[in-house]
Write a protein that binds this DNA or RNA. Sequence first.
DNA 1: AGGGAGATTTTCT
DNA 2: GAAAATCTCCCTA
Length: 183
Amino acid sequence: MVARDLLGCILVRRDGTHVLSGRIVEVEAYTQNDPASHAFRGRTPRNDVMFHAGGVLYVYFTYGMHFCANVVTGPEGRGEAVLLRAVEPVEGIDVMRTRRNRPDIELANGPAKLCQAFDLGRAQNGLSLVGPEIQILPGRRILSKDIIRTPRIGITAGQERLWRFVLREKTPRRHRRFAAENE
DNA sequence: AGGGAGATTTTCT
DNA sequence: GAAAATCTCCCTA
């Protein structure tokens, strides 16, 4: 599964003036035959990018005020993506601080938070992940024993699928409880 | 430290 | 018209 491989990779974001980067520490997988997925009910204007061939970014607007970003992973027409839920800031932390105006632990430890920190919005929907603005680079090898698997967050259907993957180290604060239960 | 509620608007039924 | 792949504030301990 691609989701596991994204853990530990480095998300790089370049705009005209800044270079931001962060280590991916939490992701969720969504497939087409998955009732929790935007792709489940077919292709629409909103989720169109999710059906593109893999290697592009799918950014969607939700809850009337937030953006979330996904890595599209399927072949053309399939509707498959991995939601980026949290990164550990590496470069450009000062820029993230001004954009987020929150304690450092909360700069990018949630799907909408990292979009705000990295300035991902409608304009980035469909962008290539090998282009100048956004890249995902390999990071250090992650051992499967350092990956925690849990139900996905914020969904009502498909909870039986344990498709949320979190790096054991640097577990975001609100997931400490689950991590402890699985020691 | 943890839980609950409100915010706010797009999207599709 | 209802629900949404969420965040932040405010409350209680």
